[in-house]
Write a protein that binds this DNA or RNA. Structure first.
Lengths: 244, 244
DNA sequence: ACATTTATTGACTCTAAGTCATAATTACGT
DNA sequence: ACGTAATTATGACTTAGAGTCAATAAATGT
């Protein structure tokens, strides 16, 4: 490949980054439905045609942005999974990371929700779908490999299937976030602020772990010190974090 | 009110029913994005203008359809909650009802997902939002009142807050359904058919109940007989049900 | 300097939601 | 039965915005 081609490749990548960056801002502000590609074109100071040199459809663009967010989350999970301690403490650190992500990037959940409609995926490109699957797989792997170690350490029963553990934890986290975002349910449960919602998510994660008899159970161990360590060791930069 | 006005009211209601019925069919087949009101108008043999005499926006129409589905579900929950037995058996019957609904109305979950985007609700009418909240409240109430009875019966610890129990169960059910519908996760977890997915949902519900120490725990009691009774007593018409 | 290839553009097409002036129908008093 | 007023139904029209592509501009190579 010539020097010229290399430079062009860099320029292309830089512009794709520009599109995704501005796209993310607009997508978060307006939601998928109200995201306007004419406005995005104006924002990046290129024409709409140029955007379509980088994405096949509006859905394709949105999926690329969502995958970026997912990658950021998976990176945070990876950091959290390196926490030193009992297996359940490490799992707790990952759960913590998930909630941190939800607090810092509050609006990203609207983006996640957009991915749940079938027609969305049909209109995104094969390659972008693959990229998303890759990041989702990373996330799944982090959770299930902690479960594997838990079995090895004797903290989880050996007959437990790690993919079932991962599924249950992913489900409770996703479900809790979605449920505690619905105004109806917020009212019925008395979830007055985002921190109450996050507390509910973490409580539900504990329920699932206790359900699997993941040792030590919540009532057998004081996780207060763990939580403090997680905060200082995994999220030292977290001046934005206020509630327990 | 005159006799004429009464008749007109009936006619209006009948046509609204017609619109919702055909709308549901199209919405299930095409998804929200691809639901075309010109096509719907053709299908009901009225003009598009007439549709707009009944709904404010396309979102409003879709919400009305979704609320209809939610009501059907709440009705099924109500029936299940009348199951006679221990409190956890009754809760199990409700969980069962939820999974039955998911199997029979497999596509309804796509409709549910459509409700998770913020911009959707903004475009639906106040009244339709209220109606949906009403049905959601019914559902929540059924679950939390079984929890209340469980506390009274000593099956749940008295310090447990029933709304937290309801939230956790709603979250795990919703989350499990969503997670087990995502192709990536299906592959990672080896969920090959819809029955495997439903089995995962029910297993996760058990985990949450065990997490709350809802007596009798899964390992302390044989729920096989309960499941058989639920099938025959609550779903006698269920010839469509094949897996355990 | 010129030819050729590559990149960029924005006016245009097309689809579909939502509107509203007009037409058709119905209600009702005489 | 008739005429008039009120109600109801219509579909051509407006508008918004995604996606296209022929024309234009810029870059590259000789």
């Amino acid at each position: 490949m010539s020097v010229t081609q290399q430079r062009k490749g860099r320029e292309r990548a830089a512009r794709e980054e520009l599109i995704l960056e501005h796209g993310r801002r607009l997508l978060l502000r307006e939601g998928f439905q109200n995201l306007n590609l004419d406005e995005l074109a104006r924002s990046i100071e290129y024409s709409k045609g140029t955007i379509y040199l980088h994405v096949e459809t509006k859905e394709d663009l949105a999926l690329a942005i969502a995958t970026g967010a997912l990658k950021e989350r998976a990176d945070l999970f990876e950091r959290a999974s390196k926490f030193t301690g009992l297996t359940r403490e490490r799992m707790r650190a990952v759960g913590f990371a998930c909630c941190q992500f939800a607090i810092v990037h509050r609006d990203y959940f609207n983006i996640e929700m957009m991915l749940r409609s079938q027609s969305f995926w049909e209109k995104a490109s094969e390659e972008r779908r693959r990229q998303h699957g890759l990041q989702a797989g990373r996330l799944f792997h982090i959770v299930s490999s902690i479960a594997t170690e838990a079995i090895r350490a004797g903290d989880l029963a050996p007959e437990v299937r790690t993919q079932d553990v991962a599924l249950s934890l992913i489900a409770i986290t996703m479900g809790s976030h979605i449920a505690s975002m619905q105004p109806d349910i917020q009212m019925l449960c008395g979830l007055t602020d985002p921190f109450a919602a996050v507390a509910a998510v973490r409580r539900n994660q504990d329920l699932i772990c206790d359900g699997w008899s993941w040792k030590p159970l919540l009532k057998e161990f004081d996780y207060t010190a763990t939580d403090k360590r997680i905060k200082t060791e995994i999220f030292p930069e977290a001046t934005w974090y206020t509630a327990s």
